[in-house]
Design a protein around this nucleic acid. Structure first.
Lengths: 254, 254
DNA sequence: ATCTGTGAATCCGTTCACAGCA
DNA sequence: TGCTGTGAACGGATTCACAGAT
């Protein structure tokens, strides 16, 4: 069939599985690297290796987007970059505000991955009056008082919260009230938001705790070859699967 | 080496599902807050609300740890804090090194959540000689040349990589060679590591891209009330479930 | 001959609903 | 009565394995 159009099987899926959505950025990154090296096509096997997943998963993922490959050959790199970018909504440019310009907020503001992928830091906001006007990453910090105006003036729909835990929910409420519908939360708090607002959470201490769990298990296994009598070293998981995706992070108050 | 086998032995009760492990830190945080307010017991319903999950999931999660609740009453807060801490391996204290002391590395070093939860920043390492000796968060930065010695001297098994993407794999290799077996990677790269080494990844631009996807979908739905004829607005998920919708992380061998 | 696309099988996690105990 | 603990049902995600396209 003619590739190149949003072939939309009305009967079924307009829904790409969440797990697949979470991997698209991974594929996109790998493809972008190939594109920069002017590689014209890539097989599912090669691309999967570059993205850190297995090829069956990758092909299944791509099958949700449509039939963008060529049997016997592989995928056209440029074409796939475009299709995935479009699917992720990166062909437009999303203004983002960062609230809470402490160490982490500053790091985020300076993070180059923003601009390069469809995101633009529209404003930096902090509650400390002493910060107001000070440029961070070339962008002057604005005071929290102007939050609502900043959001509406810039048409911001994505907000990043990098405040201390205690400030996160109030900030979140104001962002949502002003029209933000997607939030990336670095504060170690469970945010409550109305229906229709997405929250993703990044929590450093949680990630470390998960690592500690596995670390402890490894240490225990070294000596504990007993217990039960039939517990092989269980080398954890098999394939090169790197992705935590989603959670956790942190910023902690005193 | 493709088909990595790794039989997963029918792990008995010692095998807590990954998804559950990923939530334990969440419960622990909520419980710690309750503990600080001297709340003696809590029901699955209350604790679930505080952690941002539903109560059935929480009870199921706890059932993997053992029967720590009292029917008709709830869970003893202090006891649960202890049990979960133990399960996560937080009753011991884990020395951690942070490699790459740029904006992000500094933010991580300053992050209070470390010390408070069983982790101790044993050293900060950077490749820039100009940084050497300069204290960040009260800890003097050391040069990459001494990486191996620092790891072994401090018995470090958990490393945090906050370097630019290009430096991540070489740093990772050196960490692993020196004895590190768990890595938290903030660099936007797929790391390859030998079997037995855990890698978790935190990637800001990926999180934003996932948000952009949903954001785009929301925008599209506003006007597109057609298509199919039987596709209700599907307000994403129902309950304010903050979890990363189910993905779990990572372990990856080479 | 090679590599994609995908049904079918399987695995894992979530939710349901109720039995069991305080 | 109230709330935990858990088998069973369910649903989503991963893997398998092969049909189909080039």
């Amino acid at each position: 069939m003619a590739t190149g159009r949003t072939h939309r099987p009305a009967t079924r899926s307009r829904g790409i599985p969440e797990a697949t959505v979470a991997r698209l950025p991974l594929y996109l990154r790998a493809l972008t690297a190939l594109s920069e090296r002017s590689v014209p096509t890539v097989s599912s096997e090669e691309l999967a290796a570059a993205a850190g997943v297995n090829s069956a998963k990758l092909r299944k993922d791509f099958s949700y987007l449509g039939s963008y490959g060529t049997r016997g050959v592989g995928y056209d790199v440029e074409y796939l970059v475009y299709q995935i970018s479009r699917e992720l909504g990166l062909t437009q440019d999303w203004p983002v505000v960062i609230v809470g310009i402490g160490n982490l907020g500053a790091a985020l503001a300076n993070y180059g991955g923003f601009a390069s992928r469809g995101f633009r830091v529209a404003a930096l906001i902090d509650a400390d009056p002493a910060m107001a006007g000070k440029p961070v990453a070339g962008i002057p910090v604005q005071h929290t008082d102007d939050l609502e105006k900043i959001i509406t003036d810039n048409g911001v729909s994505i907000g990043v919260i990098a405040t201390p835990a205690g400030a996160a929910q109030p900030v979140c409420d104001r962002l949502v009230a002003a029209g933000v519908t997607s939030i990336l939360n670095f504060a170690p708090t469970v945010l409550s938001v109305p229906d229709g607002v997405d929250v993703r959470k990044v929590d450093l201490s949680i990630e470390l705790q998960i690592l500690a769990f596995h670390e402890q298990r490894k240490a225990g296994e070294e000596s504990a070859a007993h217990e039960g009598a039939a517990v092989p070293p269980v080398a954890h998981d098999e394939t090169t699967d790197q992705g935590p995706d989603g959670d956790v992070p942190a910023v902690m108050p005193a």
